[in-house]
Design a protein around this nucleic acid. Structure first.
Lengths: 340, 340
DNA sequence: TCTAACCCCGTAAACGTTTTCAGTAAGCCT
DNA sequence: AGGCTTACTGAAAACGTTTACGGGGTTAGA
């Protein structure tokens, strides 16, 4: 466990096997070599417990076999679901995963992008919570392939994975409407975030499509976490006590909503139906189990990894945009039969 | 975004500034240099948008500024809690985090350890689910500092972070006992895992200490996941319908237990009290909120990171063992007043 | 004016690989 | 047997840094 003196290198092997380092390299890389040489080199390598130095290899080959993933916060189950898909895909392709948690700090995210110049990774998958001009500039200037999860302006020259939260919100609201709900509240996260703004627009549009009025009293802004979500739901309940459903911009908020409603003595779904978004693992484990719109976190993660690998194999192709369709997962919090 | 022709190197800068690469390097590293040279180099670097190549730097300096974290499965909330602590500590010290998910596969874990020879990281934090002879051998032979989270045999020459699940189980059982529970079931994960075996012993010991008999019918083995845990709880309920409490070897199992009990029409905690271990985020969000023994995942993560950093600064000190004390977090699932 | 001391700077080696290029030995054909 | 091809090998360069070493210029002291 204590750092060993100094590991063997191909030079050590070459000396012991009585050949040149070139031959050693060839043998180790499976290039055609005389049987006898192969044997000598391999046994020397074996005896010495040789392990190739990946740093030296990277310097020469200009590839690190590492890919970075940058997100706001590993604690967020959505990002976690993505990592769970990304990791095996990369691993299968021989890449290691380097993790960056940026706390949604723009400067930090730009740093990551500029850091690509250091060449410690071959590519980057990034999921910025907010997308600024600075981001776009940095992305275009990046020294390695980048895949962005989360919509960027059309025309940005970057591989892009998108969720379709517009359709997603629409699915949920249609569902609530079909259950007879007409006073449907909406609890969102910050409007200056990518998901926040998209879902805000989507809510308004869906109401219009359903012929329901947009009532400011039915909308509340908090943050994408449980505690903040719960607080926002409390405010919403106070302002619009007559609501019969709450659409939450993500599942963490929805979990907070369940808690608040329970404390307030409102039955879910009888009195108030609750729907979330993202379909995180916890949604199924909640009680009542949470109806949620899956935005395909896992699929987006996988798609991002695949897109990046593809790009790493072919640097010159045109940027691609992949949109992952949403899917409504109906559970007890809207359509439940169970009562406590 | 498309890979740029070829980034500037110190050679490029040297040419433009009309100095040698040595001077460039000196300036960039802040070594004493004539004012005039400094200015020329810095402005050349600026104009060229120079970013140092970390691979070349690593090759020379023999440090990568990367640390690996290897665990069975990123999906597990316990490991996640650890990562959340480890990441910022490492980041503050200038290290990047490389993630390995091993699926608890021994061969895979050994691979990670042997991979240290490739020198792509300066150190490793590993949390093996099972600890075999092969592990210990590989750890002792590792070419870079290693910190193991999870007990290893005394005397193993490796920095080691331990939870104290013995005391943890004891805390929970004392608590249940003090609430008047006497038929306390136990749902565990596989006995050949580090936590599984520790908690199994601890359960038996705690019963003895409390003067309660060990009843085989009260013990069931499943796996450390919700679904498997739920199945195990079902079997347990069938075998011992008279139990009045269930101690679960982790919170995922406990969440499964809540579900099964609810379906079975048993009230929690009135009919059956439920306690878990690990105190994952979800425990507080469950309903009823889950009593859980915190084994200090966050603290263990942080301690591991700090121990590794310390070791990276001082390779020769004696291995250290840090034990993080458990803490009982009482919530509604054992001591709740609320009823549905 | 000469020497000593000092300060910068450039040359070159080194880190551990991969890869090009040229050379040698062996085998084959005529 | 001599020339040609083939098959393998070794020397050396290269990847982009850091750093030991020594040389050259300047300044100060004698």
């Amino acid at each position: 466990m204590v750092p060993v003196s100094d590991g063997p290198t191909i030079t050590t092997i070459a000396e012991r096997a009585g050949v040149s380092i070139a031959s050693v390299s060839r043998v180790l890389n499976g290039l055609p070599t005389r049987e006898n040489t192969v044997r000598r080199v391999l046994s020397a390598a074996e005896e010495l417990g040789y392990v190739p130095n990946s740093v030296a290899r990277s310097l020469k080959s200009r590839r690190t076999n590492q890919v970075a993933f940058a997100m706001a916060d590993i604690g967020n189950p959505v990002y976690l679901a993505m990592i769970r898909e990304i990791q095996p895909v990369l691993k299968a392709a021989g890449y290691r995963l380097v993790l960056h948690s940026t706390d949604a700090d723009v400067a930090d995210e730009i740093d990551v992008l500029r850091g690509l110049g250091e060449r410690y990774v071959d590519g980057l998958i990034m999921i910025p919570l907010r997308v600024s001009e600075a981001h776009l500039k940095a992305v275009e200037a990046a020294r390695a392939p980048v895949v962005i999860i989360g919509s960027v302006p059309d025309g940005t020259r970057v591989d892009n994975i998108r969720a379709d939260s517009r359709t997603g919100v629409r699915l949920a609201l249609d569902h609530l409407h079909s259950l007879g709900r007409r006073r449907i509240g909406f609890v969102n996260g910050p409007l200056d975030t990518v998901p926040g703004s998209a879902r805000s627009t989507a809510y308004a549009e869906a109401l219009t499509a359903l012929g329901l009025p947009y009532d400011e009293n039915l909308v509340e802004i908090g943050d994408f976490y449980r505690a903040e979500g719960a607080a926002a739901v409390s405010r919403l309940l106070a302002r619009a006590p007559d609501l019969d459903a709450i659409m939450c911009a993500n599942d963490l908020i929805a979990l907070g909503a369940l808690e608040v409603l329970r404390r307030a003595g409102r039955r879910v779904p009888e009195d108030v139906a609750v729907a979330g978004m993202d379909d995180i693992d916890m949604a199924a484990a909640a009680w009542p189990a949470l109806t949620s719109v899956s935005l395909g976190s896992a699929e987006r993660g996988r798609a991002a990894a695949e897109l990046l690998l593809d790009r790493l194999g072919n640097g010159e192709r045109e940027p691609r945009v992949v949109t992952v369709p949403p899917r409504l997962v109906v559970r007890a919090s809207t359509a439940g039969e169970e009562t406590p």
